[in-house]
Design a protein around this nucleic acid. Structure first.
Lengths: 353, 353
DNA sequence: CTGTTAGCGCGTTCAG
DNA sequence: CTGAACGCGCTAACAG
């Protein structure tokens, strides 16, 4: 069933040259050593005829580089967004000739160590350490054995490692600005706030989004009409928040800290006979699948997971190929902030129109 | 920055023995050759002290086996479900000491070939070929170069390859039975039907689900009150279907062919002032994230993606380790049907209560 | 310009 | 019971 692979030696024999000659020709370095055109021709033909493909394992052993990356995250399956991050990384890697091992820890630190070891054992050229659930965290031992990039992980001491993060602060500003530019002044927060310190969740996203929102509100002489720090950002919590807001009258606009909260907000508003965006405007964060399925479509600031994954792989490969980001010459790395684009759908009413 | 790896030779030197001796001890084959307890002790200690880990690339080259799998699918990021499939495969692989390369084709056949080649070049021990979008399809060339398993791919000629599929037929039966057991008789179909041939979509799932539903209905002397074959299974289509159904009165129960259709059905029912499950019962397929977020929770027959991924990896590793599933001795492989469990939430009203 | 030689790190004979 | 020697498939020195 499994056909035997053709080796370089067989190609050389077929072409009637030495192995090293074949190696040079096939390695594209024939020009350097000026091998006769005839020999080159014969080698190429033989390789073609036999269907020769270099054995990457052998090359890896010889060169000490395997053109292989490791991607370790705490969750690959939790959402479409997680998948996008991996997808971006895999695609960028492929475009540069790298394959990637994917591992998932579920937040288990021991497992993380084991995966890292398993990958280092397989001589990966570098590792992307990513997170979707956990944000603040410790870095595993053994990360110093290989080039590495942190993806969506904010740590106090990143030890000179490149870090790729979404620009949550700017996203917060953009969300608030979208509402204010449309003429809104009565702005309620669901998920965090109203004060700068009202962030009960572990996520750093919450804090930065809130900071951005408050910065813009303040700049316009405003403050949130209300705010609710919530630990679980799921539909039921969004639903409950709206019921609580409605006790003091109909809100003009609501900023939800993620799309799942927004879904609950939609449900509650609907149950109370309020229309979006005619009665209430809503803006949110993440751009999860539901954002496009809700009616009306939810205007939301997208988490650019795909781009982040791509960026992480690109940075890592740069480090690998150019030996950049060493402790002394940091170069263009460090923290890379990826912009979060606004997806404008139909949930904000323009009062100035 | 990158610490040099410790080699077996260094361990042997440190322990004052020959490399082969160290190899035997560390390979757990000391008993076979009866190596002196003292030497064993010294080797183990040296390995421990130096933090020795075998170089998997070298072992791969030497043994021709790399403890590595390839996972190629048309989409890793399209949904949480896709991620679950990969996750299941990765976990099962890890439990048996394998790492997995993940590749994504986006349905591009050329890319698929290239990925397959890249993996075979890296000497993967086997490949899982998976699909989420495409169902009927051609098998790529080069799949005969390595052990392989088909995951969620139904092909006419699978060429003796093991295949893992969800049991959609039984799922159809279960969905219909859930409604009938609850006393429903007025059953409408959204996505396919009403006739056996009214399946416009490419997916085989549609056909099997429909067959299962019709089988049970027929067994009870019933037929669908209505049915709609739809190509796109998204919320707007579900919404439109309900509006069409309502022209002939309020339906008793609706079977949606997937959860996204069901979401549209929920929205339409709500917009028309109908309550679920009091006025209309709904059952669906897939168990996507939204199924749990909708209010009331959607009762749905789950696609067991996680289990399927796990099964595929297990079958593949069985083949690799025991040389099973060769053309002549098929063994327990062939088509593996994974049961689709019913997730009972709150969208079916029990009329008999 | 080409062929011979020497490893990369490991497992496996086969003599001592 | 142990060590020396060979080769997995390939690349990179070095001679010829």
């Amino acid at each position: 069933m499994v056909r035997k692979r053709v080796t370089l030696a067989q190609v050389a024999a077929e072409a009637g040259v030495a192995v090293s000659t074949a190696s040079l020709v096939l390695g594209g370095r024939a020009a350097d050593v000026r091998i006769s055109a005839a020999a080159q021709e014969r080698v190429q033909a033989a390789a073609e005829r036999l269907g020769y493909r270099p054995n990457a394992v052998s090359v890896g052993l010889r060169k000490g580089r395997t053109s292989t990356l490791g991607f370790i995250s705490d969750s690959v399956a939790s959402s479409r967004l997680a998948g996008e991050m991996i997808k971006g990384a895999i695609e960028a890697a492929r475009d540069r000739g790298f394959m990637v091992f994917v591992g998932e820890t579920g937040g288990n630190v021991t497992l993380e160590r084991q995966l890292l070891e398993a990958m280092v054992d397989r001589q990966v050229d570098g590792v992307i350490l990513a997170a979707l659930l956990t944000h603040g965290r410790e870095l595993p031992d053994g990360l110093d054995q290989t080039p590495a990039v942190l993806l969506n992980i904010a740590v106090d001491d990143c030890g000179d490692l490149p870090v790729v993060l979404p620009d949550e602060l700017q996203a917060g500003r953009d969300a608030a600005a979208a509402l204010i530019d449309a003429g809104h002044r009565d702005i309620h927060l669901v998920g965090s706030g109203p004060g700068r310190e009202d962030v009960r969740t572990i996520s750093v996203a919450a804090k930065l989004r809130l900071d951005g929102i408050l910065e813009v509100l303040t700049a316009h002489g405003l403050e949130p009409a209300s705010g609710r720090a919530i630990n679980q950002w799921l539909p039921p919590e969004g639903y409950a928040a709206v019921e609580s807001i409605l006790e003091s009258g109909t809100p003009g606009a609501i900023v939800c800290f993620n799309d799942r909260l927004a879904m609950g907000v939609y449900q509650a508003l609907q149950d109370h006979g309020l229309r979006i965006p005619d009665d209430v405007s809503v803006v949110s964060f993440d751009d999860a699948s539901i954002a496009g399925w809700l009616r009306p479509g939810l205007t939301t600031v997208a988490l650019p997971h795909r781009t982040m994954g791509k960026r992480a792989a690109d940075v890592l490969i740069d480090v690998i190929e150019h030996h950049r980001a060493t402790p002394d010459e940091r170069g263009p790395h460090g923290v890379q902030l990826v912009p979060m684009p606004m997806r404008v759908r139909g949930s904000i009413r323009d009062l100035s129109a």
